[in-house]
């Protein structure tokens, strides 16, 4: 009772108080799902198409897959409400959270303990990161969470500000390029998404004789499926449970999970992204773009 009185009085007395929950949009005709365009459209369609089909079947909702043309486009689409659900990277999620109050839904089990790997040539005998002072260094793309933002954040935290610690810094156009630069000796040391580096090693895209993993960053949360805050709660629950139900014991699920590079999905929360948020605060989006 007190709460109601309080709420009424608050609404009356504080005009500055805006209430986002006041207007619940009607249930969307179709749930539009956007995914981070970090690969070619074809690759993304193969990777996410079956997942979307599964979600449609599991929830009974009509779901459409949307592949934005760029990270910025994705953020804009989410901001305008064109996208109801989006698979963000760590950095894009934090941006969407700040711009559009995006709400985390689920993430792959691997995303919770995500790592970036420092790669050196296999022949290099030096044992720790500190031994590479004054050498040449390669980050991934500027806007990459695992290839740039988080490594830079942890290097700063380890008292190794990259611009001072290394003789020169380069930015690759993708994690595979970083791996190649290290292999080819273009840089002495590079940092890349561990997932990709490991799979390149596993798939023998790059020989274990030519490069090795020197070290990893501390774990941080990276990719996440997020929804609009205003999305109906029951739809959120439906989607979440569909993701959580994916289980390797089920042969159909196994293929989907393999495509996602996951053992399963876990509920995601805002608190999981404290590290990324701290990195964005410290480094700033302006520095990221430069």
């Amino acid at each position: 009772m007190m709460r109601i009185v309080l709420a009424v009085l608050l609404a009356i007395s504080t005009c500055a108080c805006t209430n986002e929950n006041q207007s619940i949009p009607p249930a969307p005709h179709a749930i539009v799902v956007g995914v981070l365009p970090d690969q070619s459209k074809a690759n993304l369609a193969t990777r996410y198409g079956p997942l979307v089909d599964y979600l449609e079947a599991a929830t009974g909702l009509h779901i459409e897959l949307e592949i934005p043309s760029s990270y910025e486009q994705m953020l804009d689409d989410f901001d305008t409400g064109r996208l109801d659900v989006a698979a963000f990277g760590g950095l894009t999620y934090v941006q969407a959270e700040q711009r559009s109050r995006a709400q985390p839904l689920v993430m792959r089990d691997v995303d919770l303990q995500f790592l970036s790997c420092y790669l050196v040539r296999a022949a290099d005998a030096r044992g720790s990161l500190a031994d590479f002072k004054g050498t040449t260094f390669a980050f991934g793309p500027r806007l990459s969470t695992s290839g740039h933002l988080m490594p830079r954040y942890f290097l700063n935290a380890g008292d190794m500000p990259p611009e001072e610690f290394f003789a020169s810094i380069r930015h690759s156009s993708g994690h595979d390029q970083t791996v190649e630069w290290v292999r080819d000796g273009d840089v002495v040391i590079g940092v890349a998404n561990c997932d990709i580096a490991q799979s390149m090693l596993d798939n023998r895209d790059v020989s274990a004789n030519s490069i090795r993993i020197l070290d990893t960053t501390p774990a941080y949360a990276n990719y996440v499926w997020a929804t609009q805050q205003s999305l109906d709660a029951s739809i959120k629950t439906l989607l979440r449970d569909a993701f959580l139900a994916l289980n390797k014991t089920n042969p159909e699920h196994r293929a989907l999970l393999m495509a996602q590079g996951a053992n399963g999905f876990l509920p995601a929360g805002k608190n999981d992204f404290e590290d990324v948020r701290a990195a964005v605060r410290e480094i700033g989006l302006v520095n990221m773009a430069n």
Binding site: D109, N247, N263, G264, F265, L266, P267, K270, N271
Partner: peptide
């Protein structure tokens, strides 16, 4: 072993569901 892995995943899912719900409520 497969069943147990799925079971472990469900435990973690449940645990995190509570974790996230608690964090959201507190927020």
């Amino acid at each position: 072993i497969e069943e147990i892995a799925g079971f472990e995943l469900a435990i973690e899912q449940l645990y995190r569901l509570h974790l996230v719900a608690a964090a959201n409520s507190l927020a």
